[in-house]
């Protein structure tokens, strides 16, 4: 219980700083929309082609903007040496993970909240269904679970943010494959029963990597 409270405090701290400074989110949202626009130039010519590539574009956008947002999460702590403050405070490493995880989840979801309407508008596709929201939510949980772990790892290396994509993309391939294919089925008008296999993979990914990251996080920020 104490752990959850500490995690909650860390997450609100991150969210409050972001609300006050608006340092990161605005530029990431602009970046995400730019990615969509560029993809539109690449694939947008043909009405029918758009429908088949749209889920891929959307998830590539989520992955790219997710990386940016995840990178900031520990960079900010590292830059001002706040991480030392967190480490000496009587908070367990697990609570730091949970707090950072919640903060990252919140930021990525917030980005998606802007990106999805813009995307539906620009590509003329209706995305707001229960199935689609469920897929996005669960896939984002998985993103944040591994992303938080790797982001902590990346800022502690000499290459800093360069390392995150190299670690993050190969690990999240199952989620990307599952989310893209599930979204494709949803866009084709198939119901919930068609995507249960994909949802299963996304859910399994989240559970496995949330538990594993929670357990190994203490090895990343040790010193």
């Amino acid at each position: 219980m104490k752990e959850l409270r500490a995690a909650f405090i860390i997450a609100t701290k991150d969210i409050l700083t972001e609300i006050r400074t608006r340092e990161v989110l605005t530029s990431i949202v602009v970046f995400a929309i730019l990615v969509i626009v560029i993809f539109n130039f690449a694939f947008g010519g043909d009405e029918r082609a758009v429908k088949t590539v749209a889920p891929g574009i959307l998830w590539a956008t989520f992955a790219f903007s997710g990386i940016l947002s995840l990178n900031r999460s520990f960079m900010m702590e590292k830059e001002e040496d706040c991480i030392e403050g967190l480490m000496v405070s009587p908070i367990s490493r697990e609570a730091i993970y949970l707090g950072k995880f919640a903060g990252n989840l919140f930021f990525i979801l917030l980005i998606q909240l802007v990106v999805i309407p813009v995307f539906s508008l620009l590509f003329n596709l209706w995305l707001f269904s229960f199935e689609f929201i469920l897929v996005t939510l669960m896939a984002t949980l998985g993103f944040a679970a591994v992303g938080t772990l790797f982001s902590a790892m990346a800022v502690n290396t000499r290459a800093r943010e360069l390392i995150l994509p190299v670690l993050f993309f190969p690990i999240v391939t199952p989620v990307i494959i599952a989310a893209v294919n599930a979204s494709l089925l949803i866009l084709e008008g198939k119901g919930f029963s068609a995507i249960t296999d994909w949802l299963g993979i996304i859910a399994a990914f989240f559970v496995i990597f949330f538990v594993a990251s929670y357990l190994v996080f203490c090895f990343i920020i040790e010193e």
């Binding site: 790892m153 190969p170 690990i171 199952p174 190994v216 090895f219």
Partner: peptide, 22 residues
């Protein structure tokens, strides 16, 4: 750090295989 990557990377194998097969 390598230890953490070694653990997380291997846990991913069944999921990657499952998703690619599907």
């Amino acid at each position: 750090f390598a230890g953490v990557v070694g653990i997380i990377g291997f846990l991913n194998v069944p999921l990657v295989f499952l998703s690619v097969t599907l």
